[in-house]
Amino acid sequence: MPFRRQFLWQKLTGAGFALPAFLLLLALHVVPLLVLAALSFTDYELGVVTFEWVGLDNYAQAFSDEVFRRSLVNTLYYVAIVLPGSVILALLVAVLVHQRKRTRSFYEIVYFLPVTSTLIAMATVWQFLLHPSLGVINAALRKLGFSEVPFLSDPDLALPTLAVIGIWQLVGFNMILFLAGLSSIPRDLYEASAIDGVGNGIDRFLTITWPLLGPTTLFVIVTTSITAFKLFDTVAVMTKGGPQGSTEVILYAIYLEGFYYFRTAYASVLTLVFLTFVVIFSVIQTFVLDRRTHY
């Protein structure tokens, strides 16, 4: 039957088109994930030929490991600074930039610049800027009569300093997302509200902008959390976990265990913990995205 044949042929074409992607999906996501889970119950180390099943030993070790616990706390601390900092600043900037006509593109370019630039290169520059004796920031502080601040070598300051750099990098990105949300608010509403007596910027923000920007804000919060949770680059370049472990974060711990000390099995436990957090954020994100269609 020709019809049946055509139908079968379409099925084959579809499967053929999807096959490469499906195989890669298996090879790059599904199988590695299963291997990862399996490794977490072994004592495998890269380079060693044999391994043994050790049950939950790695898990027990991870949860009692002071370093790992500290890196988890540090990561969350970092998120706790970067999240409000970058989201609130970006929202403010976006609202103000959105109303500009002639200067809008200037501000857009400036604030977006860190997103396109290579973070590693810029981290090197930041390191120089923050240098205790040579850096321009400390030079300015000295000029103003303050004492030098050892931004990256003081254990209390190192992580917050990295967080400021994180905010520096994320503000423009979040601003662009907010601007997209802002331009989807009909201009009519602002005009109607202007006639209804919503006269100043604060009223306008509270009555129109903020409520209608709600879904965008939730989305930005989740993506920012995930990005901040994946902190690695600035730590690897600027502090390497120091001083005194104050900037040890979860991805850096995984990197050290898995690819520096080659304690593969132990690193896979840490990776699974990392994945758990990301999945939690992602589930929230999916939930939020579902609710994005509003009103």
Partner: peptide, 20 residues
Amino acid sequence: ILVLLALCIPIQVPALPIYV
């Protein structure tokens, strides 16, 4: 469904097995 699930997985997760 696999595609949607894989969207949540950052590269750092399969990195270890792929490296091995």
